[in-house]
């Protein structure tokens, strides 16, 4: 019974977490925009500052990103971005749509002028926002469903067993 309820809550929480994490990333990108476009801080510094203003698991992602950018022999910023995200996916509830947006954005990281950086940041933020809206709709639809499904499924199994 407990296991069933727990499974239901777990599935439900995935739907609740996704819009939240999307919003966190969007806020982080917003901050990155400020650092790049107005602060003109170099990328390693910008990421270090980002880390102190973001919640986990993204804080440690940005921190590692900042460290690996400062290390020689770690490839381009896009490579670092790809690698660091690949280590972080399992700790997030993000889906492939967001993954594509973020990895696509990573390819432009730091390699063009401010205007261009701003355009790419805006594009990524807009795309993430539309994902966030879909995620919110899904949350409304499925969060309660999974929670009750967990309880009812567990109850069904208990009844069948007797």
């Amino acid at each position: 019974m407990t296991a069933g309820i727990w499974a239901g809550i777990h599935m439900a929480s995935r739907y609740a977490k996704r819009p939240k994490q999307l919003r966190q990333i969007r806020n982080a990108l917003q901050r990155l925009e400020t650092e790049i476009v107005y602060g003109v801080s170099p990328l390693p510094e910008a990421f270090a500052r980002l880390a102190s203003h973001t919640a986990q698991p993204f804080a440690s992602l940005f921190e590692r990103m900042s460290a690996s950018l400062q290390q020689a022999g770690n490839g381009s910023a896009a490579d670092c971005w790809d690698y660091e995200w690949s280590c972080t996916w399992d700790y997030t509830v993000l889906q492939s749509a967001e993954r594509d947006i973020l990895l696509q954005f990573g390819r432009t990281l730091g390699v063009s002028d401010r205007e261009d950086q701003m355009k790419h940041l805006h594009l990524a933020m807009r795309q993430l926002q539309s994902e966030e809206e879909t995620a919110k709709e899904e949350q409304v639809k499925y969060e309660r469903m999974w929670r009750s499904l967990g309880l009812l499924g567990a109850a069904l199994i208990v009844i069948l067993m007797y």
Binding site: G75, G110, V111, D113, Q117
Partner: peptide, 20 residues
């Protein structure tokens, strides 16, 4: 060469507009 430029600019081409 592209990698060299990235390293020389500290991955932050945007921060060096005046220099460029």
């Amino acid at each position: 060469c592209m990698r060299l430029i990235e390293l020389l600019t500290n991955h932050s081409l945007y921060a060096l507009e005046e220099e460029l």
